[in-house]
Design a protein around this nucleic acid. Structure first.
Lengths: 201, 201
DNA sequence: GCAATTACTAGAATTGTATTCTAGTAATTC
DNA sequence: GAATTACTAGAATACAATTCTAGTAATTGC
């Protein structure tokens, strides 16, 4: 049980160093791509040694995976916080679109990185992502359930809600982040309405 | 003007070898991922030399880019062929969803590869992809235009049609290809209806 | 307070793979 | 049929990921 929970035994300096490595890695990846970024690049810009990176992350791929996972967790956490305050199904659904679009604009480098890859990862990382996603959609569904029960939202297969609601804005955002089209801010109403139409009863 | 047009000067054996390299690369990438695949892996399974790969594609990244681009072109070509025969806006829109879902199921390895990356590429490849995409949505819009004009479809910003129509099924398919949820075939009606609702007048 | 243990860092040495280079062979052109 | 071009081969090189050895700083148990 190496990772993540109850890091009370982990020194503060360690957490700081790990975060500094991850944020430096994001800068490097954003500038040159993952493949073109070398461990030396990260090591030099994060002011740490090669050994330190390997001690904490095991490999370059390990850095990439940790960055991806922490990014997904941040996005999910933010989304759930935002949805917690919604009063109606419509508000809930539209908030998904608004939050996604705002978050991506505020965290462009990270959003771009999250869009780029999850297929190259180790089986372990993939399992981890799957379980994170399952926990996330379970929570999402728990928030939506009341509105399904009161007839405001359609009853649909569990795994279709996320694509139906956020698939379109995600695809638009992905293209915007890679240089096509204009800012999602200008079209998010359109996508929010479409999302609502897709799942309202 | 090295690439792509009027390859009449290119020997048949050459075309065959290039295609054999690309299809071998797809097998290898699908099995181990791009990073973990070595030039030797490809070279051995394609029964050619290292020099041959470098002569045709310049680098490992070059192989990955060529594979990606040819995949996108195949997908786009198939889509346009399919849409050519549609009589109504509704048929057109729903056909996009059906074709996307069917094509992905028929070409899983390639579909999976196409979902995985386009951010790591060279500026040249990115430009190429942009122009391919522009040509594609222009053609799509040409097919849709009559139905926009006769009032069957809404008037929307050009670059929103593709995400609104195929964003949701793409996201669902992406998740399916990486092991989550059940086959798109079982839910494609749902996504086709949602697509239609998003763009009908 | 101090020995023992653990967590972390450093950087040199190794290993493995992408890429380059030299030398060809087969096809085409003139 | 000579010259040129397209292609292939595989050895040599260069470079970057990873491993290894030797530390230093913090923490724990006494």
């Amino acid at each position: 049980m190496p990772r993540s929970r109850a890091n009370s035994r982990e020194r503060a300096a360690t957490t700081a160093r790990k975060e500094s490595i991850l944020s430096t890695a994001l800068e490097c990846f954003a500038e040159h791509g993952v493949e073109a970024t070398t461990i030396s690049d990260i090591q030099a810009r994060a002011h740490c040694s090669v050994g330190s990176i390997y001690h904490h992350f095991g490999s370059k791929e390990g850095v990439a995976e940790a960055l991806f996972i922490s990014g997904i967790e941040r996005l999910n956490r933010g989304m759930l916080r935002r949805l917690g305050g919604c009063q109606s199904g419509q508000e809930c659904v539209k908030s998904v679109v608004y939050f996604y679009s705002d978050w991506s604009a505020r965290n462009q480098k990270l959003a771009r990185y999250l869009h780029s890859r999850d297929v190259e990862f180790s089986p372990a990382a993939r399992e981890r992502l799957k379980s994170i996603h399952l926990a996330y959609i379970t929570e999402i569904y728990r928030l939506f359930a009341p509105f399904v029960e009161n007839g405001e939202l359609r009853v649909l297969p569990l795994e279709t809600y996320v694509p139906l609601i956020s698939g379109a804005i995600q695809e638009y955002t992905r293209r915007w982040l890679s240089g096509q089209g204009s800012s999602p801010a200008r079209v998010k109403e359109l996508f929010a309405d479409a999302a609502w139409n897709a799942v309202k009863a």
